[in-house]
Amino acid sequence: MKPPPIALHLGRALLVAASLLALSGCSTTGTDETANDPLEGFNRGVFAFNQGFDKAVIKPVAEGYRWALPKPVRDGVKNVLDNLKAPVILANDLMQGQFERAGVTIGRFIVNTTVGLGGVSDYASDIGLEQHGEDFGQTLAVWGFGEGPYLMLPVLGPSNPRDLTGLIADIFLDPLSYVASANDVEYLTGVRTVVRAIDTRSRHIEDLDDLERTSLDFYAALRSLYRQKRDDEILNGATPPLPIIPSYSRSSDPGNAQAAARGN
C-alpha cells in the first residue's frame, strides 16, 4: 500500500506554517488602534481582483444556487457540511482546553448523524446543543500567537498569517482528508470546499450588497469587520476589553458646554 499523497505534503505545509507564524509576532488580539495593514497596497490590489472575481463568478453562481434549490434543501446541504466539520471543531475545542464545548461538539455529532439523518437536520440545536465553530487559527490565538499583518488572500478573502496557518493545519486535522486520500477520491474535499463557499456566499447576497452600498471605504470596513469577528470568535463571545470613550456631549446645560470647551 502506497503512503497517502497527502502525507507527502505534510512536511512542506508545516514549513509554510512555521514561516507564517514567525511573521505573526506576539500580541494576541487585534483590537488595537492601528489598521495593522503594512501590505495595504498589495492587499487592495488583491481585493480589487477578488471583487471582480466575485461579481463575475462567485456571486452569480451563488444566486443561481439560491434560485435553483428551495431553502430546506439548501439548509440540509449546509447542515451536512456543518456536521462534517465536527472532528476539526472537536480537535480545536480540546486543544483550547474547552472540554465542555468539546462535549457539546461530540453530542451534536452523534445526535445529528443519527436522529438528524446523516447531518441533514440540525436536531441537536433544537434540544439545546447549540452550534459553535472552532478552527486552528483560533487555537493559535488562545495559545498566545499574534495575528500578524492583515492579508487579503486571492479568492479566499480576508486573513492573516495566523488564520492562514490555521486554514492549512485544519486540513491536516480533518480525518475526512485522510479518508478521501486513502480511497483516491481526494477531489471530494475540493468539492466540499466549493459547495461550502457557494452556500456561504448565497447566504450573504443582500447584506454584502447593502454593506458595500453604505460603505465609504468598503475595503477598510471589511478589514475592521474581519478583525473584530475573529477576536469575538477567539473569545467565544465573551466581552473584549472595550475602548475608553470620552464624553463630548454639547448639551444645552451651560456648565457642560463650558467643560467641553475647556476640553475636559
Binding site: L225, D231, E233, S247, S251
Partner: peptide, 25 residues
C-alpha cells in the same frame, strides 16, 4: 448623561459599530 441614559455604541455579534466606523473614517 445630563440628558439621561444614552447609547454610546452598539455591538452586534461582537462587531462594534463605533470601532468599524472609526476604522473606516
Amino acid at each position: 448623561t445630563a440628558q439621561g441614559p444614552r447609547i454610546i455604541d452598539l455591538v452586534v455579534g461582537g462587531i462594534s459599530l463605533l470601532t468599524t466606523q472609526r476604522a473606516e473614517f
